[in-house]
Amino acid sequence: MESKLLNQINVEKLPESLQDLVDCIGVTAAYQLSLHFGGQPLYVPKNPERSVLLKRVGYEALNKLSYRFAGATIEIPKHDHFDRQLRDLAIIEESLRGASRKELAQKYGLCLRHIGNIRKGAV
């Protein structure tokens, strides 16, 4: 579900620091960074080949990150910024497939009004 929906993320609704990461390495790699290092400072190595980050974001994304932030420590935002949008996209998708507001509210732990707002695009 997440990988398909990640391409539908509205980057403009993300915090500026995440927008910068998405601009640099793409939405999927930025999401992976926020999943594994969200809420923490992260040192970006000058030499990406010897970095533990290679496993998390891949060679191409790490090279781009290194080129832009080499030797700096950057703050990685938490992944909940992505998660809210992914949840809302999943709710809209399930709604289009016929799920009721009540079913969605129970599944996602939200009130009926919030589900209605998400379905209308008000959130």
Rank of each mutant, 00 (worst) to 15 (best):
A99S: 12
P77H: 07
S100P: 06
R56V: 15
E12F: 12
D20K: 04
R97L: 09
A70N: 00
L54Y: 04
A105M: 02
Q32W: 01
V27A: 05
S100Q: 06
Q85N: 13
L104E: 03
A70T: 11
V52Q: 03
L112I: 00
L112G: 07
V27C: 05
L89G: 09
H81E: 10
G38E: 10
P48L: 05
L18V: 11
Q32R: 14
L86I: 06
E16M: 00
G116Q: 01
L14D: 03
D23G: 15
G38N: 14
E60P: 08
F37P: 00
H81K: 02
Y67C: 10
R97C: 04
L35Y: 06
R87P: 10
K13N: 08
Q106I: 00
L62I: 11
Y43I: 14
L14G: 06
L54D: 10
G38S: 12
C24A: 05
E49M: 12
L62Y: 10
L14P: 04
G109H: 05
F37C: 13
Y59S: 11
I92C: 14
G39K: 12
E75A: 11
L96C: 05
L65Q: 00
G38C: 13
K13H: 07
V57G: 04
S95P: 03
E16W: 00
L14S: 07
R68P: 04
G98T: 04
D20T: 09
L65S: 05
L86E: 03
A105R: 04
A70R: 07
K13V: 00
Q40Y: 15
E75H: 15
P48M: 00
A72I: 09
G39E: 02
A99D: 11
G58P: 09
E94W: 13
Y67S: 11
K64V: 02
L33I: 11
R97S: 01
L86W: 07
I74E: 06
P45K: 13
A30T: 09
H81P: 07
I92W: 08
R84Q: 13
Q85H: 08
H79Y: 12
V22I: 08
Y108E: 01
K55W: 09
Q32H: 12
E60R: 11
G26D: 03
G98H: 10
P41N: 15
L35N: 15
L18K: 00
I76A: 12
R84L: 12
L62V: 12
L35P: 14
I76T: 11
S17N: 03
R84T: 15
V27F: 08
C111R: 14
G58M: 12
L89K: 03
L53K: 10
K55D: 12
S100G: 10
L21D: 01
Y31W: 10
K102C: 01
A29F: 13
S51H: 09
P77T: 06
C111S: 14
V52E: 08
V44S: 10
P48E: 02
K102E: 01
Q106V: 01
L53W: 09
L110K: 02
L35C: 13
R97P: 02
V57L: 10
K107F: 07
K102T: 04
P41Y: 09
K13E: 02
L89V: 02
K64R: 13
Y67L: 12
R50M: 00
Y31H: 00
R68V: 02
L110Y: 08
I92V: 14
K102S: 01
A30E: 02
I118R: 00
